[in-house]
Design a protein around this nucleic acid. Structure first.
Lengths: 135, 135
DNA sequence: ATGCGATGGTTTAATCTTGAACCATCGGCG
DNA sequence: CGCCGATGGTTCAAGATTAAACCATCGCAT
């Protein structure tokens, strides 16, 4: 079998992600949320500290600072100082934040769901399994 | 079967793309190329016109203009005006451009190849097929 | 031909991003 | 304790991105 070109696969993957997110960006914006803010918001539950967020989301720390600040100003996020480690800021999603996060992710699900609908259920499951293995 | 959460799959996919590209960015930079410039360069053969590039790469037209300008200044790209349509600029990859493009894509292939190596050959092929179906 | 909406590309100005330097705190170690 | 390297987070300034407005050309219908 000819060797599979990894760059090609990466490229397909990247393009897919971008096309989907580009297509929902306007809807998300109507929630008063930039897409990057949604990404941040969506990871706060699992990764409540900015440093982890930067790591998971592959964005530099100042970018996280910036986006967190905006989310906080918008009332979607609250910030608590960890009494055990005064350097750390624990982020907490507010009810309003949870609302827009849920709606934003639902929009993303619908948009990507339309693409996924091209695949059989079996293939969808296979894709998910493969991606989990790769992550 | 529980409904698969499309947003979750999208997120896995996005994270995978980002982690990989983040990991190669420094190497690519040594070629004198920003990652976005590499993306542009890599699509020029198939999509020689800026408008198409913007579309395929999901980036706004001014971003394409900007990156093309830099690629041109670096001698990686040449620009010809289409005699048939004076609005259109046909982009051409120069030999120097082809060289860095090839090297850059090879770096990307190596980096992503390491991830892909977690999968059996059959699963790699399956992934590629699925992505092509989704694109 | 002439007008006109659509398309290709650039410019501008405002916003976002980010590398580098920074401050504060932590966790050891002598 | 007091130092010191490492870690969490922010600031700042330089550079990248992009929405909006723009100019030029095209295709086409009048």
């Amino acid at each position: 079998m000819a060797k599979i070109d990894a760059a090609k696969i990466w490229s397909l993957n990247y393009r897919l992600s971008m096309q989907v997110i580009t297509s929902v960006a306007p809807q998300i914006a109507e929630l008063g949320l930039e897409t990057k803010e949604l990404f941040v918001l969506a990871e706060v539950d699992e990764h409540p500290h900015p440093a982890e967020l930067a790591d998971v989301l592959c964005m530099p720390k100042p970018t996280v600072t910036f986006n967190v600040k905006r989310l906080e100003a918008a009332g979607f996020l609250r910030r608590e100082i960890d009494a055990k480690d005064l350097r750390r800021h624990r982020l907490v999603v507010t009810p309003a934040g949870r609302k827009v996060m849920t709606e934003g992710l639902a929009m993303l699900s619908r948009a990507f769901g339309q693409r996924l609908a091209r695949l059989s259920a079996a293939k969808q499951a296979e894709l998910k399994a493969i991606l989990e293995e790769l992550n």
